[in-house]
């Protein structure tokens, strides 16, 4: 078995008395696409932020390429970040920069690429997310929410990272654009050999992009299997989620 590019071992994270992650174990193999399902507020975004070192887990370990990066603040984590792309759920575009400067941010700052070259690459990547060169000079505040999401997506993939986190890439997009985004994720994985972790509520998207699907519930991964088995998981929680039923074992904590 190849070494996973990312591994979370028993990761726990609480905010006060809110125990969000209660021992998450998951790993991602290089070049594979993993989709994580889970109800709203179940801690999916928190899981990604822990993996990226934006939050420090209360317990447990995070390994990137076999190296422990749980508490590392130095070179190892820097090296990790230069190989990871992240699409934030909110987009998190820099509102003081233009669209193309956002997309090319890493090229311009960390990689010291010439502005004209960086801009060219940015426009090329905007095309991949179905945005024309005409938006390049606009500010994030001047484009729609769905467009912002796609700009953020272009920013996450521009450096061809080895591992990409997509936090709800298709939320807020029309079905046609959403499907183009699915194709884009597939292209990253299949053509460029990246590993992808996609968080989504969109089952159509999950079925299309996933090699494997995992479900986060009450702070743990309660099921994991090949995407083809999602309809035969034998797990009530997964079934309820897949079919979007309000009645079942998953109930809102009121």
């Amino acid at each position: 078995m190849t070494q996973p590019i990312l591994e979370l071992k028993g990761v726990e994270k609480s905010f006060g008395s809110n125990h969000v992650l209660r021992g998450v174990d998951i790993d991602v193999a290089p070049g594979r696409s993993l989709v994580v399902l889970g109800g709203s507020g179940s801690g999916k975004s928190v899981m990604l932020k822990n993996a990226l070192g934006l939050m420090t887990p209360d317990a447990g370990k995070i390994l990137f390429d076999g190296k422990d990066v749980t508490k590392d603040q130095g070179k190892t984590r820097e090296a990790m970040r230069s190989r990871i792309g992240m699409l934030f759920q909110s987009g998190a575009l820099f509102d003081s920069l233009t669209v193309w400067e956002n997309v090319a941010f890493r090229l311009l700052n960390a990689d010291k690429v010439k502005r004209s070259d960086a801009k060219e690459q940015a426009i090329e990547n905007l095309k991949k997310v179905r945005l024309g060169a005409s938006v390049a000079e606009l500010r994030p505040a001047e484009i729609s929410g769905g467009m912002q999401k796609r700009v953020a997506l272009a920013r996450a993939i521009i450096t061809k990272p080895d591992l990409i986190f997509f936090d709800e890439p298709t939320t807020g997009l029309d079905p046609i654009t959403a499907d183009a985004i699915n194709d884009l994720i597939l292209e990253q994985v299949k053509a460029l050999g990246a590993a992808a972790v996609t968080i989504t509520h969109d089952m159509a998207s999950a079925r299309k992009v996933a090699d494997e699907i995992a479900m986060l519930f009450e702070g743990k991964i309660i099921w994991r299997g090949p995407a083809s088995e999602i309809d035969r998981s034998g797990n009530d929680h997964v079934d309820q989620f897949v079919h979007g039923r309000a009645d079942g074992p998953i109930q809102p904590s009121l």
């Binding site: 934006l54 998190a92 575009l93 941010f105 890493r106």
Partner: peptide, 21 residues
């Protein structure tokens, strides 16, 4: 505003150190 809209997190993931940038 950058903090609450996750722009500071985004900076870090793009290998820019908020202290320097």
């Amino acid at each position: 505003a950058m903090k609450v809209t996750e722009q500071i997190d985004a900076l870090k993931t793009l290998s820019a150190n908020p202290f320097r940038y």
